[in-house]
Design a protein around this nucleic acid. Structure first.
Length: 444
RNA sequence: GCAGCAGUAGCUCAGCUGGUUAGAGCACUAGUUUGUGGAACUAGGGGUCGGUGGUUCGAACCCACCCUGCUGUACCA
């Protein structure tokens, strides 16, 4: 079958890239159709920006000599570095900065698009994936932040999740800002390490996180992670502050009030939600699934959140002098698909064609006639695409999960009555051509 | 990136402490059935045992490096 293995092109995929098959794509399409419905209802505009941006436009300043792949895929075009986008927020900021004078403010847009990250893939995590983003640009109103949570919630429920299966966690950057004032640290690296450590509370638990806040932690593979070196007094203070269950910052109090007006309850205040450490300035949200997700071997895996977002009031401003406070949320669609396929028995019908068997090429016009009758009735149908013995054709129909085959050979043609064979029951019936449509519809 | 484990047919795996032409199940192909699938039976194809180099009379098996995968960890704008 295969000789000369050498010098043949590789059939392997690059690390972190995958082929996606129909089953998965149909679930994805289902989610996308729900997203579009909800976004239209909420009055958002649909936008598409290109896959590539200048690296500096999306926050990457790539030094010429270092390898230009610090988390992103990049190449040098003439004199400037280009990068594949790693999210949809940075391109949005760029878009708003570029078109600021023309667009209505506040600008509400949603976007669906592939993004790429040059990093280590994990289960359900690839280096190329589809993201959905909804953002408000040009408003400080916390109504916007609250509405994002409501809208995501509606999308998830339209996709079949109930209120027990997901939760929106909210917090605010203001909490950690206040905290840093209290422990009086202006050491930026220490602040970063602290934030990263706090981000892991739900995964590692307080005991482990406290090690990270102090000297450091050794994980179970024996790898050591350097800690933030805070004093135990400060560590205790942080723990005390972050274990509070009611928010004390003004922004969150207001959001909670708005949630109440919306009658929105499926959220939870969680001060350990930190997220994207650089640009958030206010409320932050995280969308979490509350059921276990398993890998191919049936083992539960650390799935984490399927999306999140928050307020980023300074991002657009980076491009110039426009002051455009913004807030947004994004969902990793492929991860959601991965989880949903496991959780739900999807009844999304993968419509497979009725197969019309070919007995004799000279009768082709008869087959085409049958095929047209079915297709005109919006029934998926095909003449067996090949030249094989009947047995082969049956095996083919069986393998593609065809609901039925139509047998129209010499004998049937003489009578003008094709035989329909139901592939599930194995039953065959002889039927006149005018009844074909009805009979097939009974089967599919 | 770091660490642990793994890599034998398309898939799942066996291969005893290194010993002649490397095995099984499933899948595939052909036939039993020249107009009938999902079952059975028969026969057959398919592997330089992840790669490269080394140790050895001899390597799928031992050693080194590399690649890939899994798990954890780090980073994630």
């Amino acid at each position: 079958m295969k000789k000369d293995k050498k010098n043949k092109p590789s059939k392997e995929l690059p690390l972190g890239f995958v082929d996606r098959q129909e089953k998965e794509l149909l679930v994805r399409d289902f989610i996308i159709s729900n997203i579009k419905k909800v976004m239209i209802k909420y009055g958002f505009q649909y936008l598409e920006t290109p896959s590539f941006e200048y690296s500096d436009s999306i926050g990457k300043f790539l030094p010429d000599k270092d390898r230009p792949d610090e988390g992103v895929f990049s190449f040098k075009d003439e004199k400037k570095w280009l990068s594949l986008r790693y999210d949809l927020t940075a391109p949005l900021a760029r878009y708003v900065a570029k078109n600021y004078l023309e667009i209505a403010k506040p600008f509400k847009r949603y976007q669906l698009g592939t993004v790429w990250r040059n990093e280590k893939p994990g289960p359900g995590r690839f280096r190329e994936f589809l993201q959905f983003d909804a953002d408000f640009v040009g408003t400080k109103s916390l109504q916007a932040d609250a509405e994002l949570c409501v809208l995501i919630s509606e999308i998830l429920e339209k996709c079949g999740l109930n209120k027990k299966e997901y939760i929106i966690k909210i917090s605010s950057r203001k909490i950690t800002e206040d905290l840093f004032k209290k422990i009086k640290t202006d050491n930026n690296e220490q602040r970063l390490i602290t934030l990263r450590a706090l981000d892991k509370i739900d995964r590692l638990g307080w005991d482990e996180v406290k090690k990270l806040l102090g000297k450091g932690r050794k994980d179970k593979s024996g790898d050591f992670t350097k800690g933030a070196n805070l004093s135990s007094k400060n560590i205790d203070l942080i723990e005390k502050e972050l274990k509070k269950t009611t928010p004390e910052t003004e922004d969150l109090k207001e959001i909670l009030k708005i949630f109440k007006d919306y009658n929105f309850e499926n959220f939870e205040f969680d001060p350990s939600v930190i997220r994207g450490l650089e640009y958030y300035t206010g409320p932050i949200f995280e969308v979490n699934l509350k059921f276990d997700v398993k890998n191919e071997k049936g083992k539960a895996i650390q799935f984490g959140s399927i999306g999140g977002g928050g307020r980023y009031d300074n991002l657009v401003n980076n491009f110039g002098n426009y002051d455009a406070p913004a807030t947004g949320i994004s969902i990793g669609l492929d991860r959601l698909v991965y989880a949903l396929i496991q959780k739900k028995e999807f009844k999304i019908k993968q419509s497979r064609p009725i197969v019309i068997c070919v007995f004799d090429k000279d009768s082709m016009q008869e087959y085409i006639r049958l095929q047209k009758i079915l297709r005109d009735s919006e029934i998926s149908a095909e003449i067996y695409p090949g030249e094989s013995k009947l047995k082969k054709q049956m095996e083919y129909a069986n393998k593609i999960n065809a609901p039925a085959v139509i047998l129209y050979g010499e004998n049937e043609i003489k009578l003008g009555k094709p035989t329909i064979k139901n592939l599930k029951s194995g039953k065959e019936i002889s039927i006149s051509i005018k009844d074909i449509e009805n009979e097939i519809k009974k089967i599919i």
